[in-house]
């Protein structure tokens, strides 16, 4: 709570800057219009005009808020213009990809921790692959899977899976190896089997690492789903709204899709944070 006031100040400053930038960026077009209409603009008229243009270079915050309100609350959810509908399309791909990526990532991490050959062969490639712009192959995956006959949710989920997979592997390997020698020796003195050591020591002590990497993975999964929607020709989803908006110069639509995507990402990450707090509290691991 100590940070509340400074954070609110920074947010307020951002909004003020935003309004200022809207005036600055939209002024040329306002003057252009006024000149063609043959009227002189006073300063207050100019500012009012820059904050209410139809296709501004930078829409003012209230225009974006109104657009979001119009496309979420006032539209039916089934409508193609409803942002809730588009968010759901993106969200479902994100969640499916995230779930697949997490399961696969944990499975590979377990393999890496328990099998030396897998560790030595795969781990360097996992680390190298993080330096590669994986997102660049998104269009290809979509088109190729489309050619095989797989459409809709799954291709996007595969891209999300691919992006959320690596943070989970790296985090879980670190986490499963986090018990120190003392603890592992203790398990050995109890004659614990490999499975017992895994379930009672390694897995519980990896939880903090797991949640940290799940947050990164969730953020990556959303980016994957949004980018995955670009090459399908803007059918549905937040990415499609971005692309359609950029084709037709509908800046207000782009900004509203962007803000909704941001809110979606923030909510999902916050939910993981909440689960993390509850789980770690119950395990007695809360900091």
């Amino acid at each position: 709570m100590r940070n509340l006031f400074p954070v609110l100040t920074v947010v307020a400053a951002i909004i003020v800057l935003w309004y200022g930038a809207a005036v600055w960026l939209n002024t040329p077009w306002a003057y252009d219009k006024a000149q063609r209409a043959g009227v002189e603009l006073s300063t207050s008229e100019l500012i009012a005009d820059t904050w209410s243009q139809k296709k501004p270079k930078l829409p003012a915050p209230h225009q974006v808020t109104r657009e979001i309100w119009k496309t979420t609350v006032e539209k039916k959810i089934t409508s193609k213009r409803s942002l809730i509908y588009h968010s759901w399309v993106t969200l479902s791909a994100t969640l499916l990809g995230f779930a697949l990526g997490t399961v696969l990532g944990i499975a590979l991490a377990v393999g890496i921790v328990f099998n030396r050959t897998i560790d030595m062969s795969v781990m360097p490639w996992v680390i190298t692959s993080q330096t590669i712009p994986i997102l660049a192959i998104a269009p290809m995956i979509i088109v190729v899977l489309n050619a095989v006959g797989i459409q809709g949710l799954l291709p996007k989920a595969i891209i999300s899976m691919y992006l959320s997979f690596f943070p989970v592997v790296v985090g879980m390997v670190k986490g499963l190896r986090s018990p120190d020698h003392m603890q592992l020796d203790q398990m050995r003195t109890w004659h614990a089997s490999g499975a017992q050591t895994f379930w009672r020591l390694r897995l519980p002590s990896s939880m903090p690492y797991l949640f940290t990497s799940l947050k990164i993975a969730m953020a990556a999964a959303i980016v994957g789903a949004i980018v995955g929607e670009l090459p399908t020709g803007a059918v549905a989803g937040l990415g499609a709204r971005l692309l359609a908006g950029s084709y037709y110069g509908q800046t207000i639509q782009i900004w509203s899709a962007l803000l909704v995507a941001a809110a979606l990402a923030a909510t999902l990450v916050a939910i993981i944070g909440l689960i993390q707090r509850i789980v770690l509290n119950r395990m007695g691991m809360a900091q």
Partner: peptide
């Protein structure tokens, strides 16, 4: 003051799909 205000905002922004800004910046 700035540190306490900007850091949470910065951490929040790091989780956002900032790549979505691309169409806007291409327009500008």
């Amino acid at each position: 003051f700035l540190k306490r205000g900007l850091l949470p905002v910065g951490n929040f922004a790091a989780a956002l799909p900032i790549i979505g800004m691309a169409p806007i910046l291409v327009m500008w």
